[in-house]
């Protein structure tokens, strides 16, 4: 159960280093400068939030004991690039594909978010051709922990829960800026 919130917090770092603009926002992840259209992701998410949240069983509860611990890593600029890159891959490889619903409209919005994440991941790939993120042992251990915990859960529920918390990340981002 901790996983989704860990993911939530990790994902929040997406939005951490934003420039105060209205459309694309620019993040500095270690050596990589990545622009993300946060508004588009928020718009897609807002359209489906109610449906997503309602599909998550109550049993998938929220626990946040490790947030500070994870956060202490994320705030280190050296690890941020590594963690975010891994997190992107995690969402794309494991989360979105299990978020399919019976509602065509919802599936289309999830597709929108997934393709947006993919476009961010591709920007990371371009950056990595020149600059490679250093992944320190602590960051890798945390990521492995996420994967282990995720594997122990009902995949669909965990995936939907992770997706359903996207607005927490966005709100957190807005607060910071």
């Amino acid at each position: 159960m901790k996983v989704s919130c860990l993911l939530c917090f990790l994902s929040a770092t997406f939005w951490f280093y934003l420039m105060p603009t209205t459309g694309n926002k620019t993040f500095q992840f270690g050596p990589c400068t990545i622009s993300v259209n946060v508004n588009e992701i928020r718009a897609s998410f807002t359209a489906i939030k109610a449906t997503i949240v309602s599909t998550v069983p109550c049993a998938v509860d929220v626990e946040r004991p490790h947030l500070r611990e994870i956060g202490s890593i994320l705030f280190k600029s050296a690890d941020r690039c590594c963690i975010i890159h891994h997190l992107l891959r995690f969402y794309i490889d494991k989360v979105f594909k299990h978020c399919e619903t019976e509602d065509s409209h919802v599936n289309r919005k999830i597709s929108s978010i997934a393709n947006s994440f993919l476009s961010i991941k591709k920007k990371f790939r371009q950056c990595h051709e020149k600059n490679v993120c250093d992944c320190k042992e602590e960051a890798i251990e945390k990521y492995k922990q996420i994967l282990t915990n995720y594997g122990q859960l009902n995949v669909t529920s965990a995936a939907m829960k992770s997706l359903g918390e996207l607005d927490i990340l966005l709100d957190w981002m807005e607060k910071i800026h």
Binding site: I92, D93, F96, K97, S104, H105, N107, R108, S111, A114, N115, F117, L118
Partner: peptide, 17 residues
Amino acid sequence: QGEYERDYANESWIPIS
């Protein structure tokens, strides 16, 4: 079909209702 569907979701297609 976006790049995500093509490369990560079994080349699935999504209907536009």
